[in-house]
Nucleic acid binder design. Structure first.
Lengths: 200, 200
DNA sequence: GTCTATATAGGGATAGAC
DNA sequence: GTCTATCCCTATATAGAC
């Protein structure tokens, strides 16, 4: 199954055209970037012409938005719901524990987001999508909180970076490592950084 | 002085047009992305028309390339020269020690690079720039080395991510903190992650 | 459901006036 | 050294045939 586990599985018949478009787009958008990828390029891989895409999607933006929304479905917005949390290295470690699983499971969608930040920001701006909240935007709000000691905030940032970096900076190097194993190592690193004990 | 300390200081006269273009481009390219930024947009801020830019630069790509080359001047390629190093958590900690200073000093150029990876990769591909070596490409070669224990490689990745994440994920949150102070904290985090003693 | 043909806009880039 | 006017291309998107 492609496109992570996000795909609405319609009985696993021959992949329908819409999902194929999303698959191709996901790969090209992350690899080349959104604006360097033309509909013509997608259509070529699809085996159809450009216009065929417009039967399934209203616009090029619509394709990107559809992919982006799949990220939000998977508790990416968990952060927003935890907005009332009293953040500290300890609670942060617990949060990262959960985030690590999400990231490892939906790698490609996270990558898409990271690599096309500018395009996505403008998309939301055009929609007046005021309540849109990024993982990163929520993160920045937290580490900007002056009630948390600066040292702690830097440590929380480092822990976040350690996790995200393993996804964003390694390419395919760790692709073969089972998620459980990699996840375990990441949790260990997070603990050492935040000075917390075993995960709760 | 703008554009980090990279600017060839011609006696600090009124900023010449070429440097102004680079300044504006640096800001717009990192903020909106390279391809979402048009020459018209740059020209508007400049107060001239598009065509004026072509007096100073051969192409839009040339602007990006000029900015990119400034990064290489500042020992970004230190990694390549250290290619013969026997990498381990310890030597990696020493390397990051130096890298932290570079990053803190040339924040905006690093950000430009990170945010426009796709464009830069294609630029080098077009130039058949085979020996071009990214900080990240070099990093990936190292952590792909099977002679280093997997645990160590993951830890090295985490340390790298912790450093880079502090630059890429925090926005302006830590902008007010003196580089020396922030650098010190980062070094502490790196030590805790890599299990090394005080930096050499 | 998929296609061709085409409209329209905006981009980068050039020629040459001033 | 800076500008206007313009070229050309490619992109997204539409209308409508099959």
């Amino acid at each position: 199954m492609s496109l992570d586990a996000a795909t609405p599985d319609l009985g696993a018949a021959e992949p329908n055209t819409k999902e194929r478009i999303l698959d191709i787009a996901l790969e090209l958008f992350t690899d080349q970037g959104y604006e360097r990828t033309s509909l013509r390029q997608i259509a070529d891989r699809l085996g159809y012409t450009k216009a065929a895409i417009y039967y399934h999607f209203a616009s090029k933006d619509d394709i990107l938005m559809t992919l982006h929304l799949r990220l939000h479905e998977f508790g990416l917005s968990a952060l927003a719901s935890l907005d009332g949390t009293e953040w500290s290295p300890t609670t942060w470690a617990d949060f990262l524990d959960q985030l690590i699983d999400q990231i490892l499971e939906h790698r490609s969608l996270f990558l898409l987001h990271e690599r096309n930040r500018a395009a996505l920001e403008e998309l939301h701006r055009d929609r007046h999508d005021a309540d849109h909240d990024d993982l990163e935007a929520g993160f920045q709000r937290i580490i900007a909180n002056p009630q948390i000691a600066l040292d702690d905030r830097v440590r929380m940032t480092c822990a976040f970076g350690a996790v995200m970096g393993t996804l964003f900076l390694t390419g395919n190097v760790f692709a073969d490592i089972p998620s459980a194993e990699l996840g375990g190592m990441l949790r260990g690193a997070v603990r050492d950084l935040l000075g917390t004990g075993a995960p709760g």
